[in-house]
Every structure is written in C-alpha cells, then in structure tokens.
Design a protein around this nucleic acid. Structure first.
Length: 289
DNA sequence: CGCCAGGGTAGAC
DNA sequence: GTCTACCATGGC
C-alpha cells in the first residue's frame, strides 16, 4: 500500500527526510534512487520519499503511527529549540545552523543495542556494513516492489545459532561473543529491554542495566537509552562530542574527562541533554565529512 | 610491512 | 577516583 503523512509546518525547523536519513543514528537506511529510501523498521520493509508538504511511503501495512513516532513528527521542534536556546546561546546558534536536525525514536532496542556494540572503534560505513551483514545472514527475508531486505534477527535467533556463526562476520574486538552474551541476558530475562523502554523506568536504571552487558560502557549505554529507550536526559560523549564542546566552551568552560563531560551536559541541559549531544555531534560530523 | 583508528575493559596506582 | 595497555579488524 501507499501512505501519505502530512508534515508539521515549521518554518524554522522544517522536516527534511534526506538530511535526517543521511545522519548517523540509524544504520539501516539505503538510497534506492534519487527520491526513495529503503529501510527495515520494526521488522517491516519500507520505502520512503518526501513531497513538498508530506512524507510518502510504500509498505505492506499502514505505518502512519510507526513513522510519526520514529521521526517524532508530533514533536514541535520550534518550541523544543526555543527552550534549549534559552539555556545556552552557543546551542542556540547550533540550532540555527542545523535546522533539519531530528532525534529519531528507534522502535527496536535490541537492534539498537547490537548496532551500538558494533559501533565502538568503527567508522559509520563499517557499522552499516556489519549491521546489514548480520541481518542478511540471520534475519528473515522481506520484499517490497521487487526489493529484498532482511529483518534484524531477534535475540532468540542469535542464541539459536551461537557465537560461532557470528564469528564469520569478523565483527572485531570479540563482538560475536559480546552479542551472544547480550542475547543470553535478554532471553534469560536478566535484561528486560521492554521494561527499560517504559516511561516509568528511570534513565539511570536503564543505563545501569545496559552497562551490565559486555562491550557496553558509558557512551554506548547512553546511545541506546537516547535512541531507542526514550531517555532524553542521556548524553552520549565520544570524541566528536568532546571536540565539539572543547571548540565552543574551551578548557575553562567545560571539563575534560568523558565522565565529567556527561555530568556537565546533563546538569546544563537537563531533559534536553540528548538533543544537545546530537546537535553537537552533527556539527562535528558535518565539519569533518 | 607497520601504524593508526577509538570505546570498553582490566589492572595498575 | 585516574591512567594506560590492550582488544580485532581494516584503511592507509
């Protein structure tokens, strides 16, 4: 079927599909041609393009609510940025410099967890390649308009095939074992990702639970919490964020150790910390790519 | 060939 | 609490 979703009318922060999907948060989007993108979201294959005032999709079922949630189309970016801008003038100018900025709400915390375990010490291109290879090898096939993609394999599937199978993918840093152990914890109910995504589960509890996984420390747990668990106070700090902060605030305006930077960001930006982290990342990313 | 990338970890202090 | 060598792989 085809679907059409009217886009929110914001002049300051208009929606731009191509800017958003070119971002580095969700690794499974592919360009089909000059207009259409292909993705696999919540186990559904989706084709997407933007018309002047709407988001157009092809899929097997109605995914209006899935896409509205994913792109946070019900969120008013103007008032969000007005609120952050009032806290900090440097962030205010970043919001102006990156009007197409969007924070995605990824529907599958398991996929997000595996993807970000793969992200450590890897380039975006390589993460995309490896995540796609995991889906290709172990995920169920899905088809739309002649295009074949694969769902991201659930933890059950990882457990079923064991770590050996993943080893062939050469994920590096013993990640085949880390992903297998993560699947074990999820299936054994030691880690309840659905509960972590619940609004009643505090950010800090979700983060502590995630950090019990091998290969998940401060930065990656914050990425998972921010991107797929709806915890906006998460403030992932990597080299890009650190550099972006150093450039703007200097050594006297901000701390230098990663741990202290997390605390600094969260105290300064509160429930907007995650948005600010992504904005800072964006600026650094665009400057070096 | 060797060097580097760069987040997490264990072990050092 | 902080510092550092190491991890596995691929790009250069």
């Amino acid at each position: 079927m085809q679907g059409l979703i009217q886009l929110p009318k914001s002049t300051r922060h208009p929606f731009n599909l191509y800017e958003v999907l070119d971002g580095t948060q969700d690794f499974r989007w592919k360009k089909l041609d000059s207009e259409w993108y292909s993705g696999v979201l919540a186990g559904k294959i989706i084709h997407l393009r933007q018309t002047p005032d709407a988001l157009e999709y092809r899929s097997h079922i109605n995914i209006d609510s899935l896409l509205t949630s994913y792109f946070r189309l019900d969120e008013n970016m103007d008032s969000l940025f007005a609120a952050v801008s009032s806290l900090d003038s440097k962030i205010a100018s970043l919001a102006q410099a990156y009007p197409y900025f969007r924070l995605l709400r990824q529907p599958d915390p398991w996929e997000c967890t595996v993807a970000y375990i793969c992200s450590a010490t890897n380039s975006v291109q390589r993460i995309k390649k490896k995540v796609e290879e995991i889906a290709l090898m172990l995920g169920e096939e899905v088809e739309l308009n002649g295009e074949i993609r694969h769902k991201f394999p659930p933890p059950e599937r990882i457990l079923e095939v064991g770590p050996k199978e993943l080893e062939y993918l050469r994920l590096g840093l013993s990640r085949h074992k880390k992903i297998f152990w993560a699947a074990q914890r999820v299936i054994g109910n030691e880690l309840d990702l659905q509960r972590m995504a619940d609004v009643d589960t505090e950010y800090i509890e979700a983060k502590n639970e995630l950090m019990k996984l091998e290969g998940v420390g401060d930065k990656i747990s914050d990425c998972i919490a921010l991107f797929s668990l709806d915890k906006p106070e998460a403030f992932p700090v990597d080299r890009n964020i650190k550099n972006a902060i150093m450039v703007r605030y200097g050594s006297s305006g901000a701390p230098k150790t990663p741990r202290a930077l997390v605390k600094w960001g969260q105290q300064r930006f509160g429930v907007y910390a995650g948005y600010v982290s992504q904005l800072l990342f964006q600026s650094q990313w665009r400057a070096t790519n």
